[in-house]
Amino acid sequence: MQASAGSGRDQILLEARGITKYFGAVTALEGVNLKLSRGEVLGVVGDNGAGKSTLMKVLSGLFRPSEGEILIQGQPVQFNSPRDSHKAGIEMVYQDLALAGNMPIFENIYLGREPGRRVGGLTIVNHAESRKLAAEHLARLQIHVKSVDQNVEDLSGGQRQAVAIARATAFDAKVVIMDEPTAALAIKEVGKVLDLIKRLKDHGVGVILISHRMDDVFYVCDRVMAIFHGRNFAEAPLKDTNRNEVIGWIMGTKGHAAGLAHDKVH
């Protein structure tokens, strides 16, 4: 989460070039490009099955791209597993949250990267340290929970989302990818999660937000790009577009003038 020294705001953190992904005979992605700068929130929109989630799984190392390359701060990288993308500073918050409900908050935050002593190939976990770090990290993100010892299954949807985001940012993440972070939340919890995204942005983290909710996109994003049938369809800074145009992109239409919008009030 720390800003690396001397880096400008427009520095490209993450770049994907010509990403193509086949699943057997199915082409899920074809030549998709994506750029993300420090402290930028990029909204990625597209209809169900457009390829958003596949693209994010490629970026987070869960899928290997069939073609194309990924660059981190200009350096080409290859991800063979989520572990590789973690090392490169890319974290993903999954739609289904990917938390172990049977385990406490602090263990979920450090799952797979437990602080502790390495003894002969095994890590002896320092649970006290883990608890302390988790509490400090949650406080930094202004996430309030009763206790870091609470099991995740005892939390509300919004709290779980917050824990998932906390986990994603616990290790100086440069890029956090969020797949529909507000889809399963009660309305009053949505605002908290969106504010959390703004806080990440203030810390210099680049955020990719996949969302169907135009309210979310237009509340937190700096730029929005649309994917249609597995390809780049359109892209614009948020200030140069509007909801109706973006909704048109999702459906695969361009030049959707504001005047044609069905909900235009004359």
């Binding site: 973690h86 999954y94 990917a98 797979g112 990267r113």
Partner: peptide
Amino acid sequence: GNPQAARVSGI
């Protein structure tokens, strides 16, 4: 608890 969570945590 959740094999998918374990997998994406790099386990």
